[in-house]
């Protein structure tokens, strides 16, 4: 491995030569490292060539700049020393419903992207964010129940304690649910889960499995 390690504050290059990636910051029109880790440069893929024959002389498009970034997750596969990560707007999270009211469902965010969170981050799915269509007919208790595991997208950093989440996409919604008799259920339609033992159906906002 020939990666070089950057320490915070180290000069990485000028903004005219690189684009700043994660783990870097710009100071006085040059890019500096902001965390400790190996430097990685990613060169954007070059277009294969002019898609059609050039019929007139145009100005050559400037070559896209390579992105310079610092890998945050440097201790992957070593167990200890995991990196902290927090939910951001538009990141997809997995969360568990803790409490429902007619207006909203309160959740605990457990996973952001691929990484398991350490702390206790609270989230909120409001009734108007459950699905994209017929928003006025949504009922929270026909969409979520406490204990369900939900895949959702972060739409806002929210108020002082809650992140605001949304399930208004086909691939978002309940991915694991237990019935009232306590059995794990399987999805049968976009709004129904079925208990394999009793055969009873329950309403949920179901995430499209594929």
């Amino acid at each position: 491995m020939s990666t070089t390690i950057a320490v915070p504050g180290q000069l990485l290059g000028a903004t005219t030569d690189f684009l700043p990636g994660p783990g870097t910051h710009i100071h006085a029109s040059s890019i500096h490292a902001s965390i400790l880790g190996p430097i990685s440069r990613t060169v954007p893929p070059k277009p294969a060539g002019p898609s059609k024959r050039l019929t007139k002389i145009t100005k050559a498009t400037p070559e896209p700049l390579p992105t310079i970034s610092i890998d945050r997750d440097i201790s992957e596969g070593h167990g200890q020393g995991k990196r902290e990560i927090i939910p951001e707007v538009s990141s997809v999270v997995l969360c568990k419903v803790t409490r429902i009211t007619p207006r909203q469902a309160n959740v605990n965010i457990l996973v952001v992207g691929e990484s398991v969170l350490d702390g206790d981050w609270q989230g909120l799915i409001r009734v108007q964010d459950v699905r994209a269509t017929e928003k006025d007919k949504v009922k929270i208790f026909e969409s979520f129940r406490p204990g369900d595991v939900v895949r959702a997208a972060v739409i806002s950093l929210g108020d002082q304690s809650n992140y605001y989440l949304s399930t208004a996409r086909n691939n978002l919604g309940v991915i694991m649910a237990t019935s009232e008799s306590g059995n794990a259920m399987y999805p049968v339609s976009w709004k129904e889960y079925r208990d394999p033992e009793t055969g009873a159906n329950e309403w949920r906002k179901v995430a499209k499995p594929f």
Binding site: V7, P8, G9, G23, H25, H27, H32, S34, I35, L36, G37, R72, G81, R83, E84
Partner: peptide, 11 residues
């Protein structure tokens, strides 16, 4: 702080 991976402008 650098060990914890918190963004800093310098050490």
């Amino acid at each position: 702080i650098a060990d914890a991976g918190i963004d800093c402008v310098d050490v």
